[in-house]
Design a protein around this nucleic acid. Sequence first.
DNA 1: AACAGATGCGACAGCCATGTATCATTTACG
DNA 2: CGTAAATGATACATGGCTGTCGCATCTGTT
Lengths: 202, 202
Amino acid sequence: MYHLRVAETTGRRLRADAEHNTALILVAAEKVLADDPSASLERIGEAAGLTRATVHRRFSSRSALLEALTEQLNQRYLTALEQARADLGRPLVAFRRLTDVVFELKASHRFAMELSDEQHGCQSGLSPEVAAGLEQVFACMREAGEITATGADWCRHVYLAVLHQVHQLPEDAPDLVACGSSRADLVVRTVVGALGGVPRRP
Amino acid sequence: MYHLRVAETTGRRLRADAEHNTALILVAAEKVLADDPSASLERIGEAAGLTRATVHRRFSSRSALLEALTEQLNQRYLTALEQARADLGRPLVAFRRLTDVVFELKASHRFAMELSDEQHGCQSGLSPEVAAGLEQVFACMREAGEITATGADWCRHVYLAVLHQVHQLPEDAPDLVACGSSRADLVVRTVVGALGGVPRRP
DNA sequence: AACAGATGCGACAGCCATGTATCATTTACG
DNA sequence: CGTAAATGATACATGGCTGTCGCATCTGTT
């Protein structure tokens, strides 16, 4: 994971407690920044039970910390994609599985997800591997006739946008209840509808 | 519009040139902040051909300026909604018309739109009148059987999210070209698909 | 023309975040 | 146990943005 040189220029590895603390910092950063994206390193350290100085020792700068957060997110994404790849034969099932896991990511990595979304331009901050993995899922759905949209970026963006909206939908939203209160179900149906409705010409 | 007391506590009205300058500031603020949401008032003034001091004279604080920006956006929204209300009898036409105008808003008021979106919680920063106007459009579409989603917030959020994604789609995106390169068309079809696909139970 | 209003310029104070450094103390690890 | 590493505490320098003055100088308005 982060065994080697998080913010160190030397090749020495960190002591066990130090490594544990970097993990604490990442967790705290996610929690605090999700609430206030411009929170200071001081507040992050405090939330981790550490000092601002220590945060600086583990992460050479604020941006280094943010980088670490998105890298962490990309790792979890890859794990989720591997799970989905298992049943790529049934694209809708794979998509549903994927959405389930990504939803947990949204809950635990809200800030990092928005961070990689906000990345300027149309290039999301996602690693190329993750983007490719998502594209594969959508490609299978298209081949299976479940959707008709062809652009990989378009599919991914709509997916993430819908996911975001569903995430912050209140528990008792009528359209959520209509789906058996399963957020993942609502995402799947909405995305499939959005990406499948494109080519119908009136 | 802003004839009276933009940042003044006195009831006196502004001189003509001063009023013109507040307009310049608003335009410049939109342009600069769209590029960098955390740009300083100095840069905004510079973009308006004015001094930071003058910006402070017209808008008592940074947040006052942001408020003015969202208020301006809400005004334009209302105008767009009035145009759409014209042909509420044909909901899809009304929706299409609305989207056309809102798309121009997205181009000229990118920052303000994202600002009112980011507003914490599920309450967007839109004025109640605008929210109600949008709800009316979606309600008509639902009654006409074009969509099946029932939640007003849900419809609005999906609409704005899709709009945002389509807005930053490159000119040559395949799914855009498939719609005759009309962004508004792509929005309409995607949203209708997204909101209409909800209740289909597999 | 005269006056009030608006602006530019410069200066000042306050605030807060970042990044660096030092030193004493505690803790992990061989 | 002894050493090296990690941390807490504290201080310092830096830089940026904000908000507020005062003053000289144009410019609109009547």
